[in-house]
Structure formats: C-alpha cells, structure tokens
C-alpha cells in the first residue's frame, strides 16, 4: 500500500483546490542549481566552525566510496564484520517478527535485503523502527537502540548483500556552499517540507515531517533512500556536492535560523502573524480604548 503511494509523486495539496487547477504546481525535483560562484564557500564555512563532523562513525574509510563522494565530503562508513553477530541477535529479537528471518520480508513488512546499511540506520536511528502500528505512517520517535546497536543491526542486514544499497554516510560540511544549498533546498525539498522546514500535511493523509531535529547523517540518508512517501534522489538527480550543500543548509540554516527581528513565530507564517496582530495588536488597543474612553 505504502509502496503504491510512494510510486506516484505526491503533489502538495494545501493550495491544491484552486491553485493547482490554475496550473500553478510545477514541481521539478531536478538538480537545477542556482548559479552560485564558489567564492562564497569560504564565508559559508565561517558560519559553522563547530559543526563540521557528524554523528556516529567507527571507521570512516572510503573502501566502498567513489572518489567524487569523498571529494564532496560525503564519506561512506565501513562497518566492521564483528558487528554482524550481535546485530543478528538484535534483529531476531526486535525485527524478525515483521521483517522475517534473514530480513526477506513477510506479509506484514517489506524485504530489507539490498536496501543498504544507510536505509536501516535511518529508520532505526530516527526511532521509526521497530514499528508499533503497521497501518500508520512511521513517525520519528526517541530511538529504541543506541548508536552502536543501530550500527550492528545495519551491519547484519547489509551482510546479506555486501556493497549493495545506500551505505551509512559521514558528512563533512566544512566545504559546503550554503547559497547552493538554499537554492537546491527550495527547488527540491520546500514543496513538501515547506520553505522554513516546519513540515506540512500532504495529500492522502500523509505528511512531511519537520526538519528541525534530523542529524546530517539522517538528512543525507533521507535524500538518498527516500523514506516512506518521500521520493529518493539518486546521484543523477542531486550530485554528492549538491547533497552536501543541502545537508549544510538544513543543518545550519533551517535548524538554526537567523531570527533577526525578534521572536520568530515558529516559522508558521502569516497565520500566526495574523493572530498576533489581531489578538495582541488590535486586542490590546481595544483595551486601551476601553480604558481611555469612558462608558456612556
């Protein structure tokens, strides 16, 4: 069922009734970068001195990684084979009831073989798996397993199909170009996740979650694997360097917006602004009027 949903492109439906009919929705998930000269990358790096390296990584050797990925600062992580045995035990206890022995899938849950360690890592580290209710969209929860256990499960599932699927990436953001990231994010992601990354409801009861908590590793995994109803973007759509720029934009700007101008109203736009203007602004002035003008 979910697979079906995933197959077709979900058109954002909030504006759909009138706007889509008026021929407005031109959604092009292609990597059409704004033309940003590279001169800005040095200034970009000054923004995030502290956030260069991300999350878990036992060894970040590039055995499986192409040169372009490494040059872009996206380094595949090789999982040691000693992780496989404990991973098998964890999988048998927590996942096999739905995904079957050897992760080949059952009527309740899909086959996991060949998806790659990155897919497993995304679903487990965001707490989406193990799932409680298989009929609902899996949502982000506090993860059930710690970082090491997650990697062990990933190593176990990967061991059936070595080298196939999306690996776990370690992202180095020091070379990232935020301007490119801004433009690419607007083009490829904002249609669903909204321009401020606050997330929004999509058609058919699905929703795109907020991007305010995902780690750089999870963001790149989401881009490359396309979880649930999200389309996946291959290196043909979004190059490794572009993916890194998007990750940097989400991690450094969306998650830490420049909130000049006072209290940001949650990125909720004119609806929140309208309520403030009417309740605090006009409402407050009504009270003043009530106070100044007497009752007659």
């Amino acid at each position: 069922m979910r697979r079906l949903l995933r197959a077709r492109l979900l058109v954002p439906a909030g504006v759909a009734a009138g706007v889509a009919a008026a021929g407005l929705l031109t959604f092009t998930p292609a990597a059409q970068a704004g033309t940003a000269p590279s001169g800005s990358s040095s200034s970009a790096s000054s923004l995030h001195a502290s956030t260069a390296s991300a999350s878990v990584a036992p060894t970040t050797s590039g055995a499986a990684g192409s040169a372009s990925a490494k040059a872009a600062g996206i380094n595949p992580v090789t999982l040691p084979s000693s992780y496989i045995a404990p991973g098998e035990a964890l999988f048998a206890a927590n996942c096999a009831s739905c995904h079957g022995t050897d992760a080949v899938g059952t009527s309740r849950a899909p086959n996991l073989q060949g998806l790659g360690a990155g897919t497993i890592d995304f679903w487990v580290s965001t707490g989406r798996m193990p799932l409680a209710d298989p009929t609902e969209q899996a949502v982000r929860k506090p993860p059930r397993f710690n970082a090491l256990q997650t990697l062990e499960i990933a190593a176990y599932v990967q061991s059936f199909t070595p080298g196939v699927g999306v690996p776990i990436y370690h992202v180095n953001l020091s070379q990232a170009n935020l301007a490119q990231g801004q433009s690419l994010f607007t083009l490829n992601c904002a249609a669903c996740h909204t321009i401020t990354g606050a997330g929004d409801a999509l058609a058919d009861g699905a929703f795109a979650p907020s991007l305010h908590v995902a780690t750089p590793t999870q963001i790149i995994e989401a881009i490359r694997t396309g979880p649930g109803n999200m389309p996946h973007f291959s290196a043909g759509n979004i190059t490794n360097a572009q993916a890194r720029d998007i990750v940097a934009y989400v991690h450094e700007v969306i998650q830490h917006p420049t909130n000049r101008g006072g209290f940001g109203l949650g990125g909720n736009g004119p609806v929140a602004e309208g309520f403030v203007a009417l309740l605090i602004g006009v409402g407050g002035l009504l009270l003043v009027a009530f106070w100044i003008g007497e009752r007659a």
Partner: peptide, 24 residues
C-alpha cells in the same frame, strides 16, 4: 515579534513553489 522573515524564504523563481504558503 518577527514578521515576514523573507531571508528564510529565498528569492522568487517562477518554477519553484513552497508548500505552506498563506497570504496576510
């Protein structure tokens, strides 16, 4: 109170659309 933080929205490109778009 912040209002209309246009730097977070980015410049207008006819072929792009964000989703949660509401007017004033």
């Amino acid at each position: 109170a912040q209002i209309n933080p246009i730097w977070q929205f980015g410049p207008y490109q006819p072929y792009q659309i964000s989703y949660a778009v509401q007017p004033d």
